[in-house]
Amino acid sequence: MLKFISWILFLVIALVIAALSIANRETVTFSLDPLPFAFDLPLFGLLLAAGFIGLIIGSVVTWLRGHGVRHENRVHKREVEELKGRNMALTRDLEEARARGSNGPTPDALAPPITDKPQIEHHTGP
């Protein structure tokens, strides 16, 4: 369904661009005043070029602003991989202890203490 909607949206945009191009075929002079550059081109070409340049600049600015989020994502991915490795090692140690048949250390004894989580106290009385 989403692909169908994107094709419809693409078709509408293409029709708008075609109508813009047909209605604005007059030639205009584009010049950068202090510089000696001047171009005669159709108005629709100038409008489409301005839109394309705006799209490129907006994309670059958005990409640059996302740097912090991408960096944080990489840090979190590394942390998850490290924690997965620790989890696998602890699971392996627990299975080895069970295979030896000893009542050995409990899973709580194998795991390092978690210090960054606050302790929750339960009160049952008034």
Results as ranks from 00 to 15, higher is better:
G85K: 07
H67S: 13
V28I: 15
H76K: 10
H122F: 15
T62M: 06
A19M: 12
E82P: 02
G54N: 12
P34H: 06
S102Y: 06
P34E: 12
D40K: 15
T62N: 09
T106F: 00
H67G: 08
R65K: 12
S31W: 00
L32S: 04
I56M: 05
L94E: 13
L48G: 01
G66Q: 14
G45Q: 13
P107S: 02
G66N: 14
V16W: 13
A19I: 09
K77W: 06
P118T: 02
K77Q: 14
A89H: 11
P107Q: 01
P126H: 04
L47V: 03
I13S: 05
V75I: 09
I13E: 13
L110T: 02
P112G: 02
M1K: 09
L9I: 14
V80R: 13
F37V: 09
I8V: 11
D116F: 14
T29Q: 07
G125Y: 00
D108R: 03
L46H: 08
G68A: 05
N73Y: 13
A99C: 02
A18N: 08
F39S: 05
R78Y: 10
R74K: 12
N87E: 13
A18V: 06
N87C: 04
A109C: 02
L32F: 09
E72P: 00
A18G: 07
D93M: 09
E82I: 03
I13T: 07
D108Q: 05
I120E: 11
F10N: 12
L110N: 10
I114D: 10
R70V: 10
D116P: 02
R70E: 09
G125T: 08
L90E: 04
G66T: 04
G101I: 06
F4W: 14
G58E: 09
M88E: 14
E82H: 10
P126S: 01
G51K: 00
I5W: 05
Q119I: 05
G101T: 05
D108F: 13
T27L: 05
V12W: 14
M88F: 09
V60K: 06
V16Y: 12
L43H: 06
F4G: 10
A14C: 11
N103G: 14
V12T: 09
A97Y: 11
F52G: 10
P113I: 02
G51L: 15
L35E: 15
V12I: 15
D93C: 02
A111P: 01
I120L: 13
F37M: 09
N73L: 15
P107H: 02
I22A: 04
L55V: 08
E96W: 11
A97L: 10
A89D: 12
I120W: 14
R25T: 11
G66S: 15
R74G: 15
F30T: 01
L9D: 13
G101V: 04
L110S: 06
G125A: 05
L64G: 01
S21Y: 00
A89M: 12
E121R: 04
